[in-house]
Design a protein around this nucleic acid. Structure first.
Lengths: 302, 302
DNA sequence: CTGAAAGCGCTTACAG
DNA sequence: CTGAAAGCGCTTACAG
């Protein structure tokens, strides 16, 4: 293992100089020749600074932890969300720790997840919707660790997709096309905030233009009958198949949590990558000012 | 932030005693009363040991890094694989760091991923199939970090699903049922080792029983015609739909990388969770003895 | 502009 | 059985 002392010795400078050069500090004047010599020596030796050294000195681990449920309904999870988090973390020079917890584990009062038992990350990104086990809230509070909630609408410290605006926007597109009989085919408002927000987005758009609502709320993938509607805003791609038999494609607006655009269909996609980026940005702010409650952040569908 | 010194002071012992008690060391005799007092004090204070402190002392970060490509064809990735890795890491008292790299980034010789630029993990689990960018190999070698390859068949230090045996076993089931005209519907051997292994598994089973091969190798989801076959071993679930129109369900054996069993169909599933567990176990061994080349490990389909 | 010293939180010998 | 001391790799004042 190469230490900063090895680089210093080899380059003929002190450890402090190595640190200053490698961290690109500009407040300390270092001769260009020395700077280059240190950089080159570090490279040649394959020096990889030990994160823990800095961590213990700075009080910051340089790690962010991403926590989700093994129970898929509880957590939004996609490779793109993970990419957003990883890229976001990298932008802020942080590593991303990942952990998944089962509800069963969380019901055990003895159980404390490793990530909360130790000080191994500077902050937490929680990917648990509103139905998260009560015990989880306790654990977070006890650990007193800066936390941002992702995909949950709360009073503060959260980042979530703007379902309201997405549906609102989709509805307005149909209105702009001259439609007055516009249906909404989505799910019954359920435990997740987004179900409620989408319905409200539709209602708000219709009301704003003095139009009458015509909703077909779904319990499952039941058949949609919106006989009087000439156009439909819809959330479930499963329903599109049925709608397509009844309506021209131009008259269907899809807003979807899936990532694939359906052929010839105007589609708004869940912004999972930007969600990850935004969540990390919020968490960094939260880490800097742990006491301050951050106002909720919405991320637009794309 | 609560430090071990705080716990020591509060409990009226030295920091060393706190360390010994909290790490459950048995080689040092500690009175039961003292032990309980330290544990209770730590709990009451909400003490969370700073990983970096131990890391810097022990030379081990306690982190394992999982590295994959943003290019999906390069990396096997599923929530269950991640669960396997996370649970495996937890078993060994390690955290899991995750990072994804795009091929473009890796073509840039200047670019060194954060995880290799710093010493932040004790070892690496690489989820890159054989077609990984050349630069990646260089980077790993330069960093001299214990590494296990997952889902790639190499000479050493790798963990991969046993595609050969899965297909062999599926073929033998049909032979045991009395079939002699057995087809294999899979993909042309391509860059990934598994394509080759599956075909060989089929061939080996047929040869072992003196039967003639009848393969329909697929380029895409083309129609399968195995007119003389009374039974088929098949890898692609897409092909099952077509086969089902030609054959009774009992005469189809599916081996699949997807996680869902098809109704009424004998199916062998890719063992992604066990793969994660096994990969971590191998990596822990590799970290302990970095010089030693570990023989390849296969994980059976389930 | 550079270097010696101190200290971050932890654990491990070692002395009592 | 317990505690004082040393040291892991790093960075940050501070003295020269």
């Amino acid at each position: 293992m190469i230490r900063s002392a090895d680089v210093a010795k080899q380059a003929g400078v002190s450890r402090a100089t190595v640190s200053v050069v490698l961290n690109g500090r500009t407040d300390v004047g270092i001769s260009e020749a020395t700077r280059l010599r240190v950089l080159e020596t570090a490279r040649a030796l394959g020096y990889r600074p030990h994160r823990s050294g800095r961590a213990i000195r700075s009080g910051k681990t340089g790690n962010l932890a991403f926590l989700l449920s093994t129970f898929n309904e509880r957590s939004l999870f996609s490779p793109r969300l993970l990419d957003g988090l990883i890229d976001g973390a990298a932008e802020h020079d942080q590593h991303l720790l990942v952990s998944r917890l089962s509800d069963e584990k969380l019901t055990d009062v003895q159980f404390v997840p490793k990530i909360l038992r130790e000080f191994a990350a500077d902050g937490l990104i929680l990917n648990y919707n509103s139905a998260a086990p009560e015990r989880l809230f306790e654990l977070i509070t006890e650990a007193r660790i800066p936390t941002i909630w992702i995909n949950d609408r709360r009073d503060a410290d959260c980042v979530f997709p703007d379902d309201f605006s997405a549906i609102y926007q989709a509805t307005e597109r149909l209105i702009a096309d001259g439609h007055t009989q516009i249906g909404y085919a989505g799910w019954h408002p359920g435990p997740h905030f987004s179900m409620h927000d989408r319905l409200e987005g539709y209602r708000a758009a219709m009301n704003a233009h003095g139009l009458l609502e015509s909703t077909a709320l779904l319990e499952t993938e039941s058949i949609v009958t919106l006989s009087e509607a000439t156009a439909v805003v819809c959330y479930s791609p499963d329903v599109v198949r049925i709608l397509r038999e009844q309506l021209p494609e131009n008259n269907i607006q899809l807003v979807t949590p899936h990532f694939e655009r359906l052929e010839n269909l105007t589609t708004l996609l869940l912004p999972d990558y930007p969600l990850g980026i935004a969540a990390v940005a919020q968490l960094m702010q939260k880490i800097e000012q742990p006491e301050r409650e951050l106002p909720p952040v919405t991320v637009a569908y794309v």
